[in-house]
Simulated scan of single mutants.
Amino acid sequence: MTYSTAVPEPGPHGAKTTHMAAGPDTDVVGIAPDPAAAEGILADNPPVDPFEEDTHTRAKEIIARYPVARSALLPMLHLVQSVQGYVSQEGISFCARHLDLSDAEVSAVATFYTMYKRRPCGEHLVSVCTNTLCAAMGGEAIYKKLQTHLGSEDAPLGQEETAGTPNEPGSITLEHAECLAACDLAPVIQVNYEYFDNQTPEKAVALVDALQAGKKPAPTRGAPLTNFKGAELQLAGFFPEDELTYRGDVDGPSQAVETLRGAQIAADRGWTAPATQDVPLPELEKK
């Protein structure tokens, strides 16, 4: 036979309520299992904003680019990563406040795109393409080699794990990427989204060794190498004010001989695409 009690008790006894109401004179700290935690709950301590005034100013500049504020979310998340090296919960709330969104709405976007990291990244993000063609050309071997080189044979570095202390000089976060859109130059690696083409396990090891030593090897093509936070600031839409540096960052050559080979062969042989004809669009039924 069971019976109900005023408050929960051990054993097969139900309870009329699942909690005991606290009176105005209840010593919440005194009855708490961890008084220190209870004191923290009772204290009115607003969360510390980790973003300085210039970050708030940049956020407003980003929002001003768009007719609807919420459209600025993607570059805002890159701005957050340029400061913290990842998208923290504080970063989620920062974006939500500026864009008049809920934390859940921002989190839904931040967890959908792999470019937004939920754990602190190293000074450099090394992305190894392991999609079909790169894998066939040796991408998988490169990734496994870097796993053991940056970790060890017994404890290889895992996906989006960091060798060294995140955000510290020489630290490297390793990830495998599904496709880096450079099949003609496979296998490829990106460092902070800049290309290093035609890689081998030996070249990849030399590359990460240089990064750990504080060097910045020149990418195969594209802009000069920066660190992960610097790349994120550019993805947020902020570039150096110096014109020469700016042009060097945005005008770095992106094409390669392999990329243009098909177009060159067509030009040499006089091949052209069939002429297109303007075809009227069919009329749609009016609603």
Score class of each variant (00 low, 15 high):
D184V: 06
Y113S: 15
D242V: 01
A21C: 05
S102Y: 07
Q190V: 00
F228I: 03
W271Q: 12
G23N: 11
G40V: 09
S88R: 07
V106P: 02
A186C: 10
D25I: 07
Y3G: 13
C121F: 00
D209M: 06
T162C: 09
A273M: 14
S88Y: 10
Q255G: 12
A37R: 15
L42T: 09
C95L: 08
L150V: 08
R97M: 07
L244C: 00
S93W: 02
D100K: 15
S102A: 12
L150K: 03
H78V: 01
E258W: 05
T57Q: 15
P50H: 09
K145W: 00
P253L: 12
F228T: 02
T148W: 03
Q277V: 14
A72S: 14
V188G: 03
P201M: 02
S171D: 00
V188P: 03
A186V: 05
L180S: 00
W271M: 12
H149M: 04
P75I: 01
L281R: 13
A177T: 03
A181Y: 13
G230H: 01
R269I: 07
D209W: 06
P120F: 07
G270E: 07
P47K: 04
Q159M: 14
K215D: 15
Q234F: 10
F196L: 05
R119C: 05
L101W: 01
E53R: 14
L77Q: 00
G91S: 09
R247N: 10
H13G: 04
P156T: 01
R247Q: 14
Y193P: 01
T130K: 02
A96D: 04
E105R: 11
V250G: 07
L146K: 05
T130M: 05
T276C: 07
R247A: 12
E232D: 11
G122M: 05
C129M: 02
G237M: 06
S102R: 11
L284N: 08
A213K: 13
G214T: 01
P50Y: 11
A15E: 09
P187C: 07
T2C: 09
I172N: 01
E194P: 01
P274S: 10
L233H: 03
P75A: 06
T2Q: 14
A231E: 00
T148N: 06
A186Y: 00
E123H: 02
L174P: 00
M137W: 02
T165P: 00
E90M: 09
V48S: 09
G11L: 07
T259R: 05
V126K: 02
V28G: 01
A110L: 02
A267T: 10
S88N: 10
P253K: 11
C129W: 00
C183K: 03
A273S: 13
H19N: 10
I265R: 13
G237W: 03
D251R: 13
A36T: 14
T5R: 15
T132H: 12
L101S: 01
